[in-house]
Amino acid sequence: MPRRHDPERRQRIIDAAIRVVGDKGLAGLSHRTAAAEADVPLGSTTYHFATLDELMTAALRQANEGFAKVIAARGGLTDAEADLPAELAGLLGEWLAGDRTGVELEYELYLAALRRPALRPVAAEWAEGVARLLARRTDPVTARALVALMDGICLQVLLTGAPYDEEYAREALSRLMPGTRPAADAPPAPPRRRGPGRR
């Protein structure tokens, strides 16, 4: 008896691939393991994704959407009156406070691009998208630096297992933005010492 039409099969394969990576790591993902997890014939995975790189790309693009949804839900990044470092620090807190497995999965796929050039364009998409958004509040170079620092803070939290420190993140991010008001408990800047012959 022929199988009924299944228009959602491609999406189910992507969802299955993400679950496989979450359970077994990237090394455990193959067309066969994705097909078994999705409960579809092996030929379905190769039909929708001719190579494993294509399947990983689709999984990474979907994983990237998690951070984009957090940004869209928060909304304060485009408010010219909002404290941008505080908004970004809160944004990271919301992301890391959610399903940590999902965040780890996103980074595992993200770092897979180091050895799989086909993944690099999609791995860069989220960083470029956030940088474009932040460039509305600051200059493009600072926007890219803010994204790089956020990336580093997230990796430190994930790799060390340390709790996320939102106040530290806010202070660190504010140092990349001259003119941003310092944290309330930040120590005052030391007086500038005059060099020889200066008045």
Rank of each mutant, 00 (worst) to 15 (best):
A72M: 07
A73F: 00
A73H: 03
G75Y: 01
G75K: 06
G76I: 01
L77A: 02
A80C: 05
E81I: 03
E81Q: 12
A82Q: 08
P85E: 08
P85L: 10
A86G: 15
L88T: 03
G90Q: 04
G90H: 10
L91W: 03
G93V: 03
G93A: 07
G93H: 00
G93L: 04
W95I: 03
L96T: 11
L96S: 10
L96I: 13
A97R: 09
G98F: 06
D99C: 14
D99G: 15
R100V: 12
R100K: 13
R100D: 09
T101H: 10
G102C: 07
G102M: 07
L105S: 00
L105Y: 03
L105W: 00
L105G: 00
Y107G: 07
E108L: 12
E108M: 10
L109D: 00
L109P: 05
Y110C: 05
L111T: 08
A112R: 07
A112T: 01
L114E: 14
R115D: 14
R115G: 14
R115I: 04
R116H: 13
P117M: 03
A118W: 05
L119Q: 00
L119W: 04
R120S: 11
R120L: 14
V122Q: 08
V122P: 09
V122W: 04
E125A: 15
E125V: 07
W126H: 09
W126S: 11
G129H: 09
R132N: 12
R132G: 15
R132K: 13
R132E: 13
L133S: 02
L134H: 05
A135E: 14
R136A: 15
R137C: 11
D139N: 15
P140A: 12
P140I: 08
P140Q: 08
L146F: 03
L146S: 08
V147N: 02
V147A: 10
V147P: 06
A148G: 11
A148W: 02
L149I: 10
G152I: 06
L155H: 05
L155T: 02
L155E: 06
Q156A: 07
Q156K: 09
V157Q: 06
L158S: 04
L158W: 02
L159V: 11
L159G: 01
T160R: 14
P163A: 14
Y164F: 15
Y164Q: 07
D165F: 07
E167Q: 15
Y168I: 08
Y168F: 14
Y168D: 11
A169R: 09
E171R: 15
A172K: 08
A172N: 05
S174R: 12
S174I: 01
R175F: 01
R175V: 02
R175G: 12
L176S: 07
L176C: 09
M177E: 01
M177P: 02
P178V: 02
G179P: 04
R181W: 01
A183D: 02
A183P: 00
A183G: 14
D185T: 14
A186V: 07
P187F: 04
P188E: 03
A189Q: 12
P191H: 06
R193H: 11
G195V: 09
G195T: 09
P196I: 08
